[in-house]
Design a protein around this nucleic acid. Structure first.
Lengths: 237, 237
DNA sequence: ATGTCGTTGATACGTTCGTATCTCAACGGG
DNA sequence: CCCGTTGAGATACGAACGTATCAACGACAT
């Protein structure tokens, strides 16, 4: 209950943390003597990805336990920080949720572009189209988790304009891309590329949700997809 | 090469034409649904009274403000009863949410059957098929609200086995119905009815979600649906 | 040596949550 | 007439929620 430097009395504060030192001078002196005998330096691996680190905690909680379990205290524990740190880096919980969705949204887009871009040179347009569509399916743990998070956010966005704004602004670049890929791969005569792209994209979305629920085996989805690609695309020589 | 009825494997025959169905029973079932498309009895009426009154309050709150706003006190206020009454008629909040989902699920099915059944006599199979698919779209306030509620529940069911159990147990009667309706309306040669039904149902589900978000105009969805029905079904005389 | 600034720790505040408890009115059969 | 059962009101309780407050910290500048 006394100042560890000058042994003098410490005035208690009416609120918040109890003071340790009796004055700013004693605090500085304690700091200096603590630093002079230098410790090997614990070396922090984290530069300052605090906001991202916290956002990732939101994703994990939302994917595993649902968005309603993403409380400030849970998020902080999952991120390995104190609740105060969450509070500091995001002005409110709502803003945190919106930001976490924005980051995930951008990352998904970048990830998909990267994966598809890797195939662009080496393979034929049909493989490219198929990969683009499969990008929407929960084919590995990462995409499954991401799809679960996006699903939770989608439901909440129906009653939260700030979240809806993250989903909406773009005007259907995915459908455009799929339509372009169909054209590039060569459509059979009589095929309306736009309408086929519309049903393919929304259909793969729906099939992905069935996969999440395990309401349908993956092989079945693959077979359905193959059938429709065969149907739409002209035979290769 | 699987049975279009039960999806099981088909044993090839040593003589003659390759079998399409895995058993005589499946062949007969396909014939029956081809001749007389399903849409069975209107089923039993829903329970009335306090429990239903409270369940409806849950739906309204979930549709308008989201499932996370459905607290016991809010539900009671929306239903016009005291919180104690909610507590009395449902042992816990979780059981209330599950029950509300079950009732809505059954009601949706009954409603769809009724609406489709009304068309059964007067119109041709193509109209029947189209109406069945449009039943999944938010075409009026009632269906829009219902779809919003079901979407919220779907998201939560990913992390709640009791809710998932309401969605899962049935083995794809909707896809079966659509497949039967396609067969009844007359498919073009080369069409795989099963695969078409799969993509149609999941596609309409995805398009319905786009409609909820207003990410896509209704006329666009209607045109996409028309295109695919034209593509699948043989021309009528 | 002290000041500044971005960051974090510990705790407090006021509210709302789901649920439990206690109470009473109405009713029907013995 | 008593008494057990059913339905519902009023209120309490402990936990968890989002957020607020302020001292302490560590790096750097002066």
């Amino acid at each position: 209950m006394s100042c560890p430097v000058c042994r003098g009395p410490v005035r208690p504060s009416p609120r918040g943390r109890r003071p340790v030192y009796c004055s700013r001078a004693c605090q500085a002196r304690a700091y200096r003597s603590r630093k002079n005998p230098p410790v090997p330096a614990p070396a922090e691996p984290e530069p300052t990805g605090r906001r991202r680190q916290i956002a990732e905690a939101v994703w994990r909680i939302a994917a595993e336990r649902g968005l309603q379990m993403a409380t400030v205290r849970e998020i902080a524990a999952e991120a390995g920080v104190s609740p105060r740190v969450v509070q500091y880096h995001f002005t409110s919980k709502h803003q945190l949720l919106v930001t976490a969705l924005q980051i995930l949204h951008r990352q998904n887009e970048r990830q998909a572009r990267r994966r598809i871009g890797a195939l662009r040179d080496a393979s034929d347009p049909r493989v490219l189209l198929r990969s683009t569509l499969e990008e929407l399916l929960p084919l590995d743990d990462e995409r499954r988790a991401s799809l679960r998070v996006m699903t939770a956010y989608y439901a909440r966005s129906l009653t939260d304009p700030a979240l809806a704004a993250v989903f909406l602004p773009e005007e259907q670049p995915l459908e455009d891309l799929v339509a372009a890929l169909i054209t590039a791969a060569g459509a059979r005569p009589g095929i309306d590329v736009r309408r086929e792209a519309d049903l393919l994209v929304s259909g793969v979305t729906g099939l992905g949700m069935d996969l999440l629920h395990r309401r349908r085996p993956l092989a079945d989805v693959r077979r359905t997809l193959d059938y429709h690609l065969d149907r739409i695309l002209a035979d290769r020589p």
